[in-house]
Design a protein around this nucleic acid. Sequence first.
DNA 1: GTTAGCACTCTCAAGTCGGGAGTGCTAACT
DNA 2: AGTTAGCACTCCCGACTTGAGAGTGCTAAC
Lengths: 352, 352
Amino acid sequence: MTELTERQKTLLVLIIREYIETAQPVGSKPLVERYRLDLSSATVRNEMAVLTEMGYLRQPHTSAGRVPTEEGYRFFVSQMMQQAELPESIQHTIAHQFYQVRPDIDQWMTLAASVLAHQSQGVSVVTAPHAETARFKHIELISTQGRQVLMVMVMAGGEVSQQILTLAEPVSQERLSQCASRLNGLLSGLAIEAISVLPARSDALDQDILTLILQDMRRMEQRVSGNIYTDGLTNVLSEPEFSDSDEARRALRMFEERSTLQDLLARSVTNSAVGGLQVLIGSEGGWEELRQCSMVLARYGVQGLATGMLGVLGPMRMSYARTIPTVRFVAGLLSDLVNDAMGGEQDEIRNP
Amino acid sequence: MTELTERQKTLLVLIIREYIETAQPVGSKPLVERYRLDLSSATVRNEMAVLTEMGYLRQPHTSAGRVPTEEGYRFFVSQMMQQAELPESIQHTIAHQFYQVRPDIDQWMTLAASVLAHQSQGVSVVTAPHAETARFKHIELISTQGRQVLMVMVMAGGEVSQQILTLAEPVSQERLSQCASRLNGLLSGLAIEAISVLPARSDALDQDILTLILQDMRRMEQRVSGNIYTDGLTNVLSEPEFSDSDEARRALRMFEERSTLQDLLARSVTNSAVGGLQVLIGSEGGWEELRQCSMVLARYGVQGLATGMLGVLGPMRMSYARTIPTVRFVAGLLSDLVNDAMGGEQDEIRNP
DNA sequence: GTTAGCACTCTCAAGTCGGGAGTGCTAACT
DNA sequence: AGTTAGCACTCCCGACTTGAGAGTGCTAAC
């Protein structure tokens, strides 16, 4: 596979840019006119033929303009990656929004999803920060009525788990508080393995609660990611490639289905280099339903404490030039927020 | 406006049922054949003419079959409302799912949304239980690092609010716990109005936290509903009336937009009689974008403690026969769960 | 290596057309 | 009086045709 000449590169980029904008196969003549190229359409045609030969372009049918192939997009994106900073004004606007909402993980996630969807005109996903190894931080027991107790557990990474327990017999709030405070003292900062049996003198309630805590911590560790937030599901419907609604439906359905989405993200998590940005184009993602789509993914957070993923799904011809820098910027922002809120000595994931 | 004869009623119901199933204008001849009516198509035609005259049916164009009008659907639904119990087997399946998930409001809401969307093949909404007047129950302060503190507040209805505070100066976990326990003692069970200034001897930290608590409680009261959960956004895309994607997009978009959705629900909350079931057909909802849609809504929870809404959005020709009993059943189920978890003396909302 | 010219291909929108489904009316029947 | 068969009429819808337009690839000249 020979190298592309400089002119071929420029042409390829222009063609893809044009196609992303218009969603129409791009022809040689309109291209020279639109960009005032110092070339004749015939020359462009020749180059197009070469690029088609090499697999970067294809024609939907004889005598139609050219359309980028997955290869083409891949080349385009690799060009894009280096540069592409988000304009300062937009950076400020976004950051401003984050500092305006109530400081709470849930709010931040929702906002991040909203910002991503808005900026990229695609479907966004954000997963809440999640620790690979669960470390206990704090527990709280609140009696609601009779034998029902609300248990709120906070992990070192900031993850919160709530559940409602039914005890064997009614217990006063006072006893619950004492139990919680004992356990807090004993378990603070410990990971699952470090938690052993309780001192002999502890009562049955302590034991029961401890069992539940361990159960819950194991559940947390098994999860591949924190809660999933999405936004912009409808954005993609306006894209012409999804006008035949069945294709769109299948793609959106799998995106709405949390479990599938989690699989998808999980796979990317393992692949993704720390702090790196990943662009999955078309079949690269490996999901049949998303063959026509691309995803821009990034990992954010504080390595070793809590990390999450965020990304955008769009048609293959999504505006990478907008999406990539946005994803990168928001990832940085969330990393900062997580670091400020829970961080400490650990390494924060920063942009490469 | 004269009454409908018995035969006209039967016919109307059959026509609508047929239309709901096929999404095609229904003609006289196919109708008699399909349902083996002891009538000729001509007679049916005559009756159809009458029903059209009365506004229950319309024809898309001369010499096409009949299609129900909003009036028609309204009549149909009013017939439906009385009866319509969900089959026992399905009731069990659903109930089983609820008792299988981890007992946690968030899980229940997600599951409820999922069940509704699945059963009705429509878009579901569920709002978390929300109290009209916020009553303090418990607070917890957890130091994360330096001056950052995670504050978790639980309200009497079970609502939980988290946020991350930045204090003026670092405070030890011990002092935070003492502060929390003092405030818990003082404020337990109180509504906003009942909370006055603290005893003179309390320190600055107590004061600061109290201010934040009040702020947060006010915020909770201002909200019209708890968190919103939706599911099945994509279901509606397979409906033929939304094949021209623009209509679908606008409808879904407004449904995805939380704020609009909240408005919509808020309006219904005020309208809805306690425990009642509400069916909004077409323009009844008052939302331009949902002119082609219907909603089945219900309120659940424990009156005076915490209530929420749940419902299903679908095309006007949605399967009311499936949706109505499902919504009613799930509402009952959630009421039970809320009552078990937090209830007590208050009146639980039950099915009429 | 580049470009003008040209024949060729293929899509897309508009127009045409006939079959079919369904109606409403009338007149006969019960 | 209500019901039904028969029939003319209307209108949609899919299939087909057609012509314009856009774009290509090739060839030959620059």
